[in-house]
Amino acid sequence: MSDAAISRAVHPWWASRRLGFLAAALVIAALPMMLTGNYWQTNLTICAINVLLALGLDFILGYAGQLNLGQSAFYGLGAYVSTLLITRLGVPFWAAFAAGVAFAGLAGMILATFAVRLRGHYLAIASLGFAVITYQILLNWINLTQGPLGIYAIPPPPAITIPGLPAISFRNPVALFYLVAGVTLLVYFILDQLVRSPIGETLTAIREDEVSAASLGINTALWKVFAFGVGAAVGGAAGCFYATFVGTLVPDAFFITESFTILAMVIVGGMGTLIGPVFGAVLLTLLPEVLRGVGDLRLMVYGAVLTLVVLFMPGGLVQAARVVGARLGLSR
C-alpha cells in the first residue's frame, strides 16, 4: 500500500489536506466580513504577518531542530531592504519584495554557514548575537537606514488592475489582509509540501539525531543551511509586509525581544507542526488586543495566560487539541 493510500486509510475525512486548505481559504475570505471595522481588520493583517514569522521559525526550529533566536534580524532585513529599494531607488513593490525575501534568505544561509557546527544553546547565542548586530546596524547606519529617525510614509503595495473590474487598492485594509493572508497561505502550502517530502524527512532526521543522520550519508551542514535559508526568507517576507502595512519603520520594531515573541508563538502553538505556529501566532497577536478591556492589568493577564499554556500544555495548543480530540473520539 502506498504512503498516500495509508494516509487516506488512517486519517479521517476532515483531516484531508485539500479540505483543510479549502477551509482555510474560506475562513480567510470570511474573516473580514465577520470582524468589521478598520481596527479588527488591521489586526487580521498583523495576525497574518505574525503567522509568516512563526512559520519561518518553526521550519528552522521545529523541523530542523536548530534553536534560532535571530528571526527578528531576518524580519528587519526584509523590511529595510524592500523599503529602501522602494523609497530610495523607486524599485516597484514586488521586485523590492522579492529582493527583501532573497536578502533575508541569503543572510540566513550565511549565518548558518558559520554557525553550522553549533548546536543547542551555543547556536541560540550565536543567532542572538546576529540579531543584536543586525539591530545595531539598522540603528546606527543612519545614512542608509535613517536609524532612529525612522522612515515614514511608506506606501502600500500598488493597486492591482484586472481588466473589466475596478482596481484593487491596498490602502483598503481588507484588500491588504487578503494579500498578506493569501501569501501566507501560499507559504504554508509550500512548507507543507516540503515537510511532507523527503526533504522534510531529512530535516526531521537531523533534528532527531544529527550523528545518525550523517552516518546515513546526509550532508547535515548543507541541509541546516537550507533550513535557515528558507526560514529566514519567510521571515523576510513578513518584514516586507510589515513595512508597507505600518507605513513607518524604526529599528525598535526589530529589537531582539521580537525574536522571543516569535519563539513564544511557535512554542505556544506547538512546534514541529505547521498548524501549531498558526494558532500560536493568532492567539498571541489577538490576546493582548482582546484584553485591552482589562485595562492596566492587560499585560499581567497576557503573561499569566502564556505561562499557564506552557506549564500545562508543553506541546502547545496542537497537543491540547489532540487531547481534546481524543477524548471526544474524533481522532485515533
Binding site: 471595522g37 478598520n38 481596527y39 479588527w40 488591521t42 489586526n43 498583523i46 525612522g150 505600518v246 513607518t248 524604526v250 520594531a253 488586543e289 485591552r292
Partner: peptide, 13 residues
C-alpha cells in the same frame, strides 16, 4: 509605532 497605530484604530473604530 505599531501598538500606537493599533490603539488609534481601536479608539476611532
Amino acid at each position: 509605532p505599531l501598538p500606537a497605530s493599533q490603539a488609534a484604530k481601536r479608539l476611532l473604530d
